[in-house]
Amino acid sequence: MTIETVVEAHQVRKSYGDVDVLKGIDLTVRQGEVVLVLGPSGGGKSTFLRTLNHLETPDSGTVTICGERIGYGEKGALRESRIALQRRRTGMVFQQFNLFPNMTALDNVAAGPVHVNRVPRAEARAAAGELLAMVGLADKTGNYPAQLSGGQQQRVAIARALAMRPQLLLFDEPTSALDPEMVGEVLDVMVRLREEGMTMIVVSHEMGFARAAADRVVFISDGVVVEDKSPDLFFAAPEHQRTRQFLDRIL
């Protein structure tokens, strides 16, 4: 096998009380692949994304990232402090950005390396400055999140995730909270990451991004994967009734 498997999710299940949110989801993502996860709201796509770094603990099933089973070691379930170590490989970008409001953009980006990897602060800040330049925010390093637009905040959040040099980036509706004119600047950064070979799983309704940058579209509805194919095939020839209904509503 020449192409490495980054994500291997097998029969992931999760329920809240009587509600089965995930009913056994399988997903395999190879290195450098960009997977767009689509589906109706409440269908379980965000919950599934969050099980990949154990922000949600699945009730059953396995998640393996770069060959390491998440949440479990040789002696069974891991403690949160050990799961934290596993999460360093996975970056996550949230719908509401979740930047730390009491830190400047630069310190937000440096936070992971400084507090998780114990990189000296000066060194981490220098690297953070380069990352902010890469997302087009070289002149905003000293700004606090409240002084930045939504699009700028989300680009800082992407830089913050990149600072940990992750093998995988998870995006949970990264453009849903943005004003329409700011969506482009965030998608541009994501397209550029794809060109650099970053493995990404993106929960989003951005059809433009799906066509331009996704290698596969995975359609999740009612807690199961309904379709998993290339964007061209997905949009041209959806096999299932549920997929067609969904596409009719959003296109």
Partner: peptide, 23 residues
Amino acid sequence: VPRGQSEAARALGMPPWKVFRVV
């Protein structure tokens, strides 16, 4: 403190006491 703050810290790989102390 909004839940998203501790989630962002956990997603970066911070162990629980760092999440509490730093964020």
